[in-house]
Simulated scan of single mutants.
Amino acid sequence: MARVFSLPDFFLPESPGRPIVYKKIKAKYRPVPQYGLQSLVRLLSGIESNLKPSFERQLNWPVRVVLDDHDGAAGVILPLIPDEYFVSLRRSSGEIKRRPAEVQYLFTDSRYCARVGIPYPDESQRLDLCRSLSFAMVMLHKLDVVYGDLSARNILFRVLPKPAVLLVDCDAVRPKGGAAPLGAQPHSPDWEPPEAVKARARRDSTGYNIQNKETDRYKLGLAVLRILSPGRGCSTNTDPKVVKSVLPPRIYSLLEQSLSVNPSGRPEAQTWYKEFTS
């Protein structure tokens, strides 16, 4: 949908030392209404000053909207993703490729990670990553923003200097009372909540496309489950029983509630965060 260009010679006045990039929307996806993207940029000014550094560390948020001579927005300016959120992936040919450290790599087993040369976090580090993810969702939901397509490719992770996650594609989120700037928020395959699966079965496209805090909470629970249960079948697993024997009862209970078919019973991100920090 977009191409990303480095802007090594440009800086914003409010953060003169912070590298930025230009995410240019491809012509076939335009026009994109500029006002929706501008509303996301304006949200930054409403964040409490004590939370803003954490917000900027954990969400790759648009900081400017770019316009050109055509209708709508041409793209957005984003902070450059820090190096620690990339991995050097060793291919079978021996070639090394630099890739975003997508959370999908956490779903693989230790042998795969050793073979391709990427980190394999231990159990404690994985719990810290889950805590970081839950806090990112706390901040979004506190602003009444629905992330939407929370999935294996939109969450980046790092292990050092300390475990943390970074949410990307934040130009596709939906603030309360508005539409997602880039159109309907998708469900990635194998990340569909039960209510979307049921809607698809009855060919209800409107019901299928609904995204809200409850669907975010389901996907948060799914991410926690998969981060904590790496190995065969992890990337499609929706059954919390696979980790029941290794999790504290309270965390397992939250997993069961999060993956429930009852949206109203899913715990808030704040509940997850408190549990991971207790």
Rank of each mutant, 00 (worst) to 15 (best):
K176A: 14
G178C: 14
G178P: 06
G178W: 15
A179C: 12
A179M: 15
P181R: 05
P181W: 09
P181E: 03
L182I: 07
A184Y: 14
A184H: 12
A184V: 14
Q185Y: 02
P186L: 06
S188A: 15
S188M: 10
P189C: 03
D190A: 09
W191H: 10
W191E: 06
E192Y: 12
P194H: 09
E195H: 15
A196F: 06
A199E: 07
A199M: 10
R200K: 12
R200P: 07
A201F: 13
A201Y: 08
A201M: 15
R203H: 11
R203S: 14
R203F: 13
D204F: 01
D204L: 05
S205L: 05
T206S: 14
G207R: 13
G207L: 13
Y208H: 13
N209D: 14
I210S: 11
N212P: 06
K213E: 12
E214W: 07
E214L: 06
D216V: 05
K219D: 08
A223Y: 03
V224T: 00
V224K: 01
V224P: 00
L225C: 04
I227Y: 09
L228F: 05
L228Y: 05
S229A: 03
S229R: 01
P230G: 05
P230V: 04
G231N: 06
C234N: 11
S235K: 12
S235E: 10
T236L: 05
T236Q: 10
N237A: 05
N237G: 02
N237Q: 02
D239C: 07
D239W: 01
D239G: 06
P240F: 05
P240M: 07
P240Y: 02
K241W: 04
V243M: 02
V246T: 07
P248K: 08
P248S: 09
P249L: 05
P249F: 02
Y252S: 00
S253I: 07
L254K: 00
L254C: 04
L254E: 00
L255Y: 00
Q257H: 11
S258V: 03
S258Y: 05
S258G: 13
L259N: 03
V261I: 14
V261C: 14
V261S: 12
P263F: 03
S264L: 09
G265H: 14
G265M: 09
G265Q: 11
G265I: 10
E268M: 08
Y273R: 02
Y273I: 00
Y273T: 05
